[in-house]
């Protein structure tokens, strides 16, 4: 079971788009997702460790250094609307296999 977090600057525009992309891919890959929450980078920074996988735009991945050190899988995206990119990154990192239903 995986709890997912998607975060971008405001938590209202880009993160919502990212959430829709991730939802689509989670379905396609048949992942066991119990929760997908979207929020701002600042909120995400303090709550990231409560999640299994965090998605954010590639350019903000440095903000999640602490979470990465604590074992959270953080996935940076170049194109937040690209289902192909999310899919590829989940498969290559082994996360798709790990959280399969």
């Amino acid at each position: 079971m995986a709890k997912l977090l998607v975060a971008c600057v405001n938590g209202a525009g880009t993160s919502l788009m990212m959430k829709m992309t991730v939802e689509k891919v989670a379905k396609e890959l048949n992942l066991n997702v119990t929760k997908i929450h979207h929020c701002s980078l600042a909120e995400g920074k303090s709550t990231a460790t409560q999640y299994d996988i965090v998605f954010c735009p590639q350019s903000f991945i440095h903000m999640y250094k602490d979470a990465i050190e604590k074992g959270v899988d953080v996935v940076g995206l170049r194109n937040v609307l690209s289902a192909a990119e999310v899919k590829q990154k989940l498969i290559e990192s082994g996360l798709a296999e790990k959280y399969k239903k």
Binding site: V9, N10, G11, A12, G13, T14, S40, S59, N79, V80
Partner: peptide, 17 residues
């Protein structure tokens, strides 16, 4: 940075809810 350019060619200017 220009994160509001969500895909090449398209911007979604916005603030928080």
């Amino acid at each position: 940075g220009p994160y509001i350019v969500i895909v090449p060619g398209v911007a979604i200017p916005h603030c928080m809810e």
